[in-house]
Amino acid sequence: MDKSSAVPVKSGIQHTRSAVRLPRRARRWHEYVLAMMFLAPSILLFGIFLFYPLIKSVYLSVHSTTPRGEVAKFIGLRNFEKLFDSGHFLNSLWVTFEFMLFTVPTSIVLALILAAICRTHLRGTKLFRFIFSLPLAISVSTGSVIWMVLFHPTLGTLNYLLQAAGLPAVQWLTDPNWALISISIMTVWMNLGFLFILLLGGMEGVPEDIYESAKMDGAGPMRTFVQLTLPLISPTIFFASVTSMIGAFQSFGQIHILTKGGPMNSTNVLVYNLYQDAFVNFRFGSGSAQALVLFVLILILTIIQFKFGEKKVHYQ
């Protein structure tokens, strides 16, 4: 279709170009319009769901709101000042940071190990690949409900196993020292499916002949993994670390279902605190201010990762 229809158009342009200078601009304009038409759907969607809310957040963050959620008056940067004055928000920041620290490295290392094991083409590998990628098929809410049963303080499977092994029961979700760890365990499990597939895909992309020559040179499996596989899949690992970090910042479902930010705000991550403030207490001003802080934080962390992390990444 392209060839046959393009020919008359092209000849038409050549014909007009020889006549006056203007049509060249017209052609550019034409291309521009065409490009815009192709971009329009995504611009429209981004506009409605990303840019408009972003602008609105900026607007709301400098206003106070009534209990009905309507804008009351302009208060400048008071919302931000209040946030950084309250220990509550700083606690949320700290919890978020801890949560990221608990989940991101653990998920990636575990997924790497599982992927490395499953790279081999032994019998039954396919079954394990299937099992390890299963968490991907489970939504956060379903996963949370499953873990709620496991974590149940008196009837939970985990405590049953602990007690069977002669260990004291753990108050997984109700002990402030444990709650964040429990949520992290659950989140690592949730992340594992996606990261496993991602990293396994990366490993499968490494050409077999590289391994063969390494083998001929006498490299053991450990050395092959550390010196060959890791550098070769570093772009994938880099991608995985950026996305899981952002994912960790945005975790909400499991916290909402399992702990609601408690006990003692020990799992009250930034996004949950924001949700509470904006959509439960209807202080959209404060909520928007927190959303913007979150936005800037993710932005900074992503830039840092690109600046320093990417240098270590080896693109083939």
């Binding site: 149940h152 303080p153 008196t154 009837l155 108050q171 979700l173 109700t174 609601k260 408690g262 006990p263």
Partner: peptide
């Protein structure tokens, strides 16, 4: 007394199971 958290559902279940 046990501290089973905020969920009344958890205490109810424990009660029905005869644990509290």
């Amino acid at each position: 007394m046990l501290n089973l958290g905020r969920k009344t559902d958890d205490t109810k279940k424990a009660f029905a199971a005869g644990q509290i």
